[in-house]
Amino acid sequence: MKKIGIVLLIVVCFLTMGCGKEVKENDNKESNPDAYTFSYNGLDYVLGSEFTTSKYGKEDSYSEAASCAFDGADKTFTYEHFEVATYPDGDIDRIASIYFLDHEIKTPEGISLGDSINDMNNAYGSDYQQSENLYTYTLGRTHLNFIVENDTITSIEYYYDAEN
């Protein structure tokens, strides 16, 4: 009788312990070397880290998009040469992506819009995933996307994999 009780208890424990998907804490600290970092005007934009306009400056324009059902909003802060998108994490916003708007800025490895695919290969190597025109380099939970059209880089975007 006791044994059956224990077995049932174990079944309940098995079903309830540690099986649920919990919202994972963001483990991407400012100093995490396993994350792509974009730098501009002496400021480092670490993907997945907290974003505030008090730190990064007032944007030129701003927009936000609420999710279909959940609280919080994805925000986009547009600066002169790039756009920073954030995602909500509790009370703070974290950097979800950085999108280059013109060729005036470069990645820390020296790549800008208009450079060639050879420049990209020289700077980042060939360890990328390719899907049609899209070349993706991955570092930890961060990604660097290049879109290449006619051997020329036409889009550069960093993004953070917040869902994994």
């Binding site: 986009t76 999108y99 708007l101 899209l134």
Partner: peptide
């Protein structure tokens, strides 16, 4: 509607 994010290029 006030401002919308930039219309990004897509790889595909």
């Amino acid at each position: 509607v006030s401002t919308l994010p930039t219309k990004k290029r897509l790889g595909s």
